[in-house]
């Protein structure tokens, strides 16, 4: 079976044209990034509002859990029957599934900011917006980005499932291979999808490291040391 996989990867036909690896990878990436951007634009402001004001937290957590329980395949097939367009159905489905982790991360990040720090900022005369952008957001950043990373993992996985309704991307290899029982193609699709997820996660981990202020990292490291000591 290793042989089949190697054969598939070394077959130059699989690297060219509309069904070639570069095209499929870029398509997959495209769906992921497009829905990530849309989901972020929707979820982050809501998360910031709820986290900053503390209003609607229960509703937010509750609805997040309901969306999380939505079965991907059911959602995407339902949307496809509704819109009869695989791109629209898939993107909406992906956005819906990416919103809860980003929302939860943003909200939880702001919740986790030490109350006394926010209190001190207020006591020094920072206005609401200054407090949010200069204090709460930088400190919350690790958890917010953790939510984004989770969303990306789910998007890569879900985009593969969404291929069922006729979407391009790496899911095609998995489903088309299954249909004709071409084991090499299926395994190649699985490997490529997993690799894409891992690479994107690594990229985001690097971004996270670059964006999170040094003092916040030090504080986290200090807290961990205290726990393990």
């Amino acid at each position: 079976m290793i042989g089949e996989i190697i054969d598939w990867f070394t077959n130059s036909a699989n690297w060219q044209g509309e069904d070639g690896v570069p095209t499929r990878v870029l398509q997959h990436l495209g769906y992921v990034l497009l829905s990530l951007v849309i989901a972020t634009v929707i979820a982050v402001p809501i998360g910031l509002y709820v986290g900053h004001t503390g209003r609607g937290g229960v509703l937010l957590v509750g609805s997040g859990n309901v969306i999380r329980a939505l079965p991907t395949l059911g959602l995407v097939t339902f949307l496809f029957l509704l819109f009869t367009d695989s791109d629209i159905a898939a993107i909406i489905g992906l956005v819906v599934l990416a919103i809860p982790p980003i929302l939860a991360g943003t909200y939880a990040g702001l919740q986790a900011v030490d109350r006394s720090v926010v209190d001190a900022a207020e006591g020094m005369g920072m206005r609401g917006g200054q407090r949010l952008w200069q204090i709460e957001v930088p400190i919350a950043l690790p958890i917010v980005l953790g939510g984004v990373r989770n969303a990306v993992l789910q998007l890569v996985a879900t985009a593969a499932v969404a291929a069922y309704v006729g979407l391009g991307g790496l899911g095609r290899y998995l489903l088309d291979g299954l249909a004709i029982l071409d084991y090499g193609e299926v395994a190649a699709g699985a490997i490529l999808t997993a690799l894409l997820a891992i690479v994107l996660d690594l990229v985001l981990a690097t971004v996270q490291r670059a964006l999170v202020p040094r003092g916040v990292r030090l504080a986290e490291a200090g807290a961990k040391k205290e726990v393990s000591a």
Binding site: A121, G123, M124, R214
Partner: peptide, 30 residues
């Protein structure tokens, strides 16, 4: 309220220092 607070020093338990800013920029906040 915000202007009033900038004219009144405020110190709390555990100091409430901003963890993402250096000591100097913490002091320079107001």
């Amino acid at each position: 309220a915000a202007l009033l607070r900038r004219g009144i020093g405020y110190v709390i338990q555990h100091a409430g220092l901003f963890p993402h800013r250096t000591v100097l920029s913490n002091i320079a906040t107001v």
